[in-house]
Design a protein around this nucleic acid. Structure first.
Lengths: 337, 337
DNA sequence: CTGTTAGCGCCTTCAC
DNA sequence: GTGAAGGCGCTAACAG
């Protein structure tokens, strides 16, 4: 029972000898058949089929200047449906351009991100798409990447000027908070990410701006900015509603916080508490219309974000792109209950 | 503004000449440094750093018998959080084994699956993990794959005997349906996938077995087996509840059908209909505890399924595996409301 | 301990 | 319209 040595694939030589031609003729046939007699092409294709031959793409891309046809994609958390959709968008556009994606999950770990990126470079990717973990920019500088084009998605990296696709975090959070203020709420709690997370910071800024503009006070006791998962969010919501002067409305900066908050609110309602806060959620979730409290959703399209990132990358690869780094900010839409 | 030609990476030769040694010494150093003087190693590593050199993995794996370190993964729908988690599980185990994944989305399209698989083979993947679209087995036969090991996940392909990871679909559906019967329901509707989808068929079988065993009649008018998305599921649920003799409980064979059914039920309840069916859902979903009707969930771990698939594959690659094709069937757990 | 040779699979370039 | 030579980046095998 010896170690599996990697099945040997048939090579162009074997196809050639089977078809009674030289490897060059096989190569030319596979490249479209220019300057190869039709009957010879036919013999070649037959040999290809019989042997189950597939052209070795790795050997092909060995030649300098030959693209590998690979795009390296590193995201923070594939378990989050949002990033699944993002990856799908990237994959779709890559496929449309005849490229394949190498996918890695960073889990918000800087070291893992570095490791993935260098591996991708070692595999000769034509480009990189990255949802960066809030870290330093050193390992992402163009010269460190051997000038492989890089597109950032969802978040920026401080000090790194590259093509970027973002959501309108600030505007969405502003408008969401605004809708609560317009409905008469002034005591509005905030649930969100660590401020070190780019989107966490931006969404807080939108909340803050709306509050200040309206002359509403921001009470630090109902601002919770450190929840990265549902359980933590539920605990924060509990602390918020345990206050004597609990908020009458909650702005939640992302899906995870929304689920946690609503879980806590639902629990209290089932326990008979006379609690009916309005909720605004950045990020959509399914069945939001069936929640025990009305939920306003700030919706956006992760798949589109992925498509935009890939489009940006390929425009760079095709040389269609202008020179400077570009930023695309996708709009969000507000859906009232 | 010419086309971007793929940034040329520094090669082992450049590192060698910079460090004043031969390429072999660089190669040896990078391979761990056996038989290289420490001070020379240091010089080499310095040159590597200065030049930003990354070993070209594609060139490396050109050598026959050398694994590429790549695993091809094709799934049906990355937008489905279930498969996002599955992909994550595969990625994790692959990373633990120092492998990277090439990810493709088939969208339940046979042609696309064939295309992806041949591309993966052309890129010299060491193995394949596939959630097959219910199609034929021809293009997946070992000889067509150049004997690259293949693991199927979630579904089987008729006539293809390979390593497979499945859920206990039949048992889960049986127990779920059984719990409804035990609660006194006998008129139980079924919502599910096309029977051509492997899991759709298996889950129906579990439902059917429980019903027949209990002596409950299966009324074709409340069995809907052709819904692949939420909208279709909601329509099916509507048809079901529009009947004069509507069911008192619903068994839903997957997440998409559950969401559709509950959306429809919620709508009717809001409209004042005196409707309170019990629901059993194969597949978990968030906030199921807050639904307007009690939902029993047949839960399972997609990420674990991915991990198992990858584990099966790597045991094959390491030669640890026994000979015959193996099937792993993961248990499901039932969570009552 | 280090270097030279040769060859992996493919394709550009140059003959014929 | 076809083939032979050579080289892409890397490393086993064989010197020294």
């Amino acid at each position: 029972m010896s170690t599996f040595r990697g099945a040997r694939q048939p090579t162009i030589k074997e196809v050639a000898s089977r078809a009674g031609v030289s490897p060059m003729t096989v190569s030319r046939t596979l490249a479209g058949g220019r300057n190869v007699r039709p009957d010879v092409q036919e013999r070649v294709m037959e040999a290809v089929k019989e042997l189950g031959y597939y052209r070795n793409e790795n050997a092909r891309s060995l030649r300098p200047g030959q693209p590998s046809g690979l795009v390296g994609v590193a995201i923070t958390n594939l378990a989050n449906p949002y990033y699944g959709n993002f990856a799908l968008g990237v994959e779709e556009v890559a496929a449309e351009h005849g490229r394949r994606i190498l996918l890695g999950n960073t889990g918000e770990d800087d070291a893992r991100e570095r490791q993935l990126v260098s591996d991708f470079i070692g595999r000769q990717v034509d480009g990189l798409i990255l949802v960066p973990t809030s870290g330093d920019a050193e390992h992402l500088r163009p010269e460190r990447l051997g000038d492989v084009p890089l597109v950032l998605a969802s978040r920026r990296v401080p000090g790194l000027e590259v093509d970027t696709v973002l959501l309108d975090d600030v505007g969405g959070a502003y408008r969401g908070t605004r809708s609560l203020l317009d409905a008469g709420h002034t005591r509005i709690g905030f649930l969100g990410n660590r401020s070190s997370v780019f989107t966490g910071e931006r969404r807080y800024r939108g909340y803050e701006r709306a509050m200040l503009e309206h002359g509403a006070a921001i009470d630090p006791r109902i601002v919770f900015r450190d929840q990265q998962d549902v359980a933590a969010a539920a605990r924060a919501a509990k602390a918020m509603f345990d206050l004597a002067d609990a908020p009458t409305a909650v702005f939640s900066a992302n899906n995870r916080n929304t689920i946690g908050a609503i879980r806590e609110i639902g629990r209290r309602i089932r326990d008979g508490e006379p609690l009916h806060p309005a909720v605004v959620s950045f990020d959509d979730f399914e069945l939001s219309e069936l929640m025990p409290v009305p939920v306003t959703v700030i919706d956006h399209d992760a798949r589109l974000l992925g498509r935009e990132a890939a489009t940006l990358l390929f425009s760079r690869l095709d040389g269609t792109a202008e020179d400077g780094p570009r930023t695309v900010e996708l709009p969000v839409s507000i859906e009232f209950p």
